[in-house]
Design a protein around this nucleic acid. Structure first.
Lengths: 366, 366
DNA sequence: TTGAAAGCGCTAACAG
DNA sequence: CTGTTAGCGCTTTCAA
């Protein structure tokens, strides 16, 4: 198939001819490098604009080895966490002149592998990835082995010596646990999502590092008081509204029902709150709710939701800045500091009620 | 600066040598084109995997002219509308083997221009852009003139003969207007955001096409009844929470206050609902609210928000599918059909109250 | 089927 | 300062 249209692209050679100089001089003037007399530069630039010349970045990249672009691989760009972090990344790297190539993997490890390979093949200067899997990650190892700068986002990969930009979740998780325990909650459900390939029917679920930190904080709260958290209350579901909804119902309608629910991110939180409302269960009278990641809507619902907030934009920014530094040749930068997460108490957590929760009609619009 | 690490990249030449064949034959085997004997193919492939060869897509692109990537330029990836549409685009083009290069312009025309140029220079095979400006768009015209496939998203550009994937907003806007008018509303505020460079202090604001359609529907409703909509109630603000909040206060506290507010997208809607709550104004008793773009949280707040929903994912998918077809060589495809938008009545619109709205304390958590 | 050689558009020595 | 000459890694004639 012929190239669409028959617009032959204008090249340096064309500009050089038009300006009456050698190709090399034209290239130098255009690229603003090397030594060029004012007279020549002027003529070349004039010729270039006359022909509306546009340099072919591909050719440039091919022999400089720098594409001035970085790859970003996230699980789900629709998750506000990632879209905000992505903006932080963009803002950080754009000021160093990089373009961001963004790919979405729908939290599937296979898609992540493909995306990383493709970005490597396109010769991006560096990569930021939020790994979907906790397991072995040969594709990430390959990036490191190829000497290409890599920064992880949000999650770490055990055994991979790569810096990660993330929040220091555990203290806030612990504080949240204490908050719930102080109010008498003992049956606390934890709902998270996981890639199918990671969730094995038998044996323990390998949780992504930030989820593990959240759960660790919770468990620590129990342990500290000589209590134990029933691990059966941990519910990893598919990334799927129905699965999350089912987990909620399971948890609140079990013979020994959960009196509080923790949503591992705001997408999950949305479904949890919705499911509870549909069931006619009141927050926090019947069920208390804690959500990870603050979102504007969390303050808008009634009652406003208590959350653990992360400095998401800053995390992204830190990842971008670090990657830019690495690409710029920084050798042994100090490890990235985890950024603080904070518990924001609003209205969705209350003392545990005695006895089983009563069923109510859905609260009418006020 | 030396390339990070001293990993010389493996090239076809290396593979050829390892396999004991010519560079050309190796390339043919690797690229699965031309004629290659089974014996050679086998040896080449074996050699390739032994050396863990990865083809350099850049070099390939440089002489085929196809990058197998498309550029997507949106105003704000944090706007759920765009992040959903983007997923639609990705899903559509990925099945044709394209990678998406996503760029965010923060709704700034200058940034859009830069992004489009950069993508052209990177030789993407085609472009999808949601133009930030209604005005003259030489950078978009340049894309067309270069013969590179282009599809617009959400908004059209007058005078540019390019197909746009979008919703057919006006009928739903009209239905919403009738809904409000039937309930007695006459002072209806319309809050939208606009790029600073488009908002001139004097003269009419050139509205982006989808906003114009929304307003047109509103105006039509008034006109039909022999009424006129006071254009002073149109408030274009910067993309800035404070500006939106100010517009809300202005509107509801004016001597002749608005009895209903229309938010032009869900990001604006969030701020509107929040501002109203802070003012102790009840929805819909004191102020009715209509929001464009349905979002999960709209059903979660009390009362649930009445919205005009668009098939955003499908719009993105249509844009992606069309672009892929164009790149594939489709010559005169039928124009894209606008997809239907629908009014979803929930609880945020009520009959207009008599007299000025009373002030109430913020509704306590139920 | 194969291989040699000529590009794709640009940068980067290397001599003048 | 300027021009000539090689490449970057791959595809693609063109002969053999």
């Amino acid at each position: 198939m012929a190239k669409a249209g028959n617009h032959r692209e204008i090249t340096v050679a064309d500009v050089a001819r038009e300006a009456g100089v050698s190709k090399a001089q034209a290239a130098r003037a255009l690229g603003a490098y090397g030594a060029v007399s004012d007279a020549v530069r002027e003529r070349v630039l004039a010729a270039a604009s006359r022909l509306s010349y546009r340099p072919n970045q591909l050719a440039k990249t091919l022999n400089t080895g720098r594409s001035h672009s970085i790859g970003v691989v996230v699980g789900d760009i629709e998750n506000p966490y990632f879209s905000l972090a992505t903006r932080g990344i963009s803002d950080a790297v754009e000021r160093s002149g990089f373009t961001v190539v963004l790919t979405n993997t729908s939290e599937r490890v296979m898609a992540e592998r493909a995306a990383v390979n493709m970005l490597m093949d396109k010769r991006v200067d560096g990569l930021i990835v939020a790994p979907a899997s906790t397991g072995d990650s040969p594709h990430l190892r390959a990036v490191v082995d190829a000497g290409r700068p890599l920064v992880l986002l949000d999650r770490t990969v055990p055994g991979l010596a790569v810096d990660a930009a993330r929040a220091d979740i555990e203290p806030a998780a612990r504080e949240a646990a204490d908050h719930l325990l102080d109010l008498g909650h003992r049956r606390i459900g934890y709902i998270t999502t996981a890639d199918g390939s990671d969730v094995r029917p038998d044996g323990p679920h390998p949780l992504p590092s930030p989820v593990a930190a959240r759960v660790a904080g919770l468990v620590a709260g129990f342990t500290e008081r000589g209590l134990t958290w029933d691990p059966d209350l941990l519910r990893p579901c598919r990334h799927d509204e129905a699965a999350i909804r089912k987990a909620v119902l399971d948890l609140v309608h079990s013979p020994s029902p959960a009196t509080a629910l923790i949503a591992s991110d705001s997408l999950i939180g949305q479904v949890v709150v919705g499911a509870l409302q549909e069931q006619g269960l009141r927050i926090p009278d019947d069920v208390s709710v804690l959500m990870y990641d603050d979102q504007p809507w969390a303050r808008l619902v009634t009652p406003p939701i208590t959350v653990v907030a992360q400095p998401t934009y800053d995390i992204g920014y830190a990842a971008g800045a670090r990657l830019a530094a690495l690409i710029g040749g920084a050798t042994n930068p100090p490890p990235l500091q985890p950024l603080p997460a904070t518990l924001i108490r609003r209205g969705s957590i209350a003392p545990v009620a005695d006895g089983p929760p009563a069923r109510h009609e859905r609260t009418p619009a006020t």
